[in-house]
Design a protein around this nucleic acid. Structure first.
Ligand SMILES: [Mn+2]
Ligand SMILES: [Mn+2]
Ligand SMILES: [Zn+2]
Ligand SMILES: [Zn+2]
Lengths: 135, 135
DNA sequence: TCCCAAAACTGGACATAGTCTAGCTCGCAT
DNA sequence: ATGCGAGCTAGACTATGTCCAGTTTTGGGA
C-alpha cells in the first residue's frame, strides 16, 4: 500500500494524516500480518526514528476506534489485524504466529440455539502447527 | 467440590496437596467460572490470608502443566478454566465475562480444507451481550 | 521421636505491556 | 508574524506476571 493510499484511507475515516500516523499506519494496513504494538514501534522507527511509544499506541488505538484495525488478544500476545472483514484464525502453538482463514472456508452451525445472548460476532480459533511457509 | 475431592484430584495428577495448593485449587476447580489470577489470589486469601502472590501463580501454572486447568487470553484479560474438555466460549463484550458453550451445541464444517497446518485444537469464540443471568 | 534433605513458600526485585499527563512543537488560519 | 488547537514527546505510573535467594515446612529414614 503506497503512502498516498494510506493518506487517503486515513482522510476517508476522519483521521488527519500526520507524518507519524502515516508511518504507523503503513506498518500495519494493507498486509495480512498480525504485528504486536512493539513490532509496529520497531518498524515505524525504521522510517521515522524519533517516533515515541505513546504515539504508536495512540495511533493504533485511534485506527482501532475508527474501524481500520482490529485487535486480538490471542496469538503472540495482543496483536493488530488490518483485515476488518470477517475471517477465522489459525495460530501456531509454538510461535504464536497467526494466519487468516477466509470466512467462506469454514462454517458454524448451531448458533441459533444460543438464546441467552445477542451475538454480535464470532470466530473460529484454530491451534496447531504450521507445515511450511505460506505459498 | 469438597476439600478432600480436591486433595484426591491433586494426588491423582502427581501434585502434593499442600494446604496452600488446596486453597488455590478450590478457588478454581469444580466450578464453571473463569477467574483471573488476581481474582484467585483474592479468593484464596479469604481462606488463607498469608498466601503469597508467587504461590498463587506457581500453583496455577502447575495445575495448567498437569492438565487440570486451561488458560485463555480472551475474556477479561487472561483467565483460567477448570473445564478441560472441549467446549466453546461466549464472551460479554461489555464485561469480558466468559460462559461455556457445550461442544455438541455447535459444530464446524470445512476443517478438512485446511492443509497447511496440523490442527491440534479449535474453538468457537462468540462475542455479544448476555441477556440475563444464567438460569 | 528426632533429624535432615527436598519441596514448598515467601517478599521483593525485575520484566513487560500499556496508559496517562504535562509540557512542547508543529501546522494552519488569520 | 501571531495565536491556537492538534499532535507529539518523555517519563511517571499501573497492571500483570516471572524470578530468585533466603526461610519454613514436610515427610521419610535412622
Ligand atoms: Mn473497532
Ligand atoms: Mn495444559
Ligand atoms: Zn486476521
Ligand atoms: Zn470454559
Amino acid at each position: 500500500m503506497t503512502d498516498s493510499e494510506v493518506v487517503e484511507l486515513l482522510r476517508a475515516h476522519g483521521i488527519r494524516p500526520s507524518a507519524h500516523r502515516v508511518a504507523v499506519a503503513s506498518c500495519v494496513l494493507g498486509n495480512d500480518t498480525h504485528p504486536s504494538a512493539e513490532t509496529v514501534l520497531r518498524k515505524a522507527r525504521e522510517r521515522l526514528p524519533v517516533i515515541s511509544r505513546a504515539t504508536v499506541y495512540n495511533t493504533l488505538n485511534l485506527l482501532n476506534e475508527k474501524g481500520l484495525l482490529r485487535q486480538h488478544p490471542f496469538g503472540a500476545g495482543t496483536v493488530f489485524d488490518s483485515n476488518v472483514s470477517r475471517h477465522h484464525h489459525l495460530i501456531d502453538e509454538e510461535t504464536g504466529e497467526m494466519r487468516d482463514i477466509p470466512w467462506e472456508k469454514l462454517s458454524v452451525s448451531g448458533l441459533e440455539s444460543i438464546k441467552d445472548a445477542e451475538i454480535t460476532d464470532y470466530m473460529i480459533v484454530i491451534r496447531g502447527r504450521f507445515k511450511k511457509r505460506r505459498a
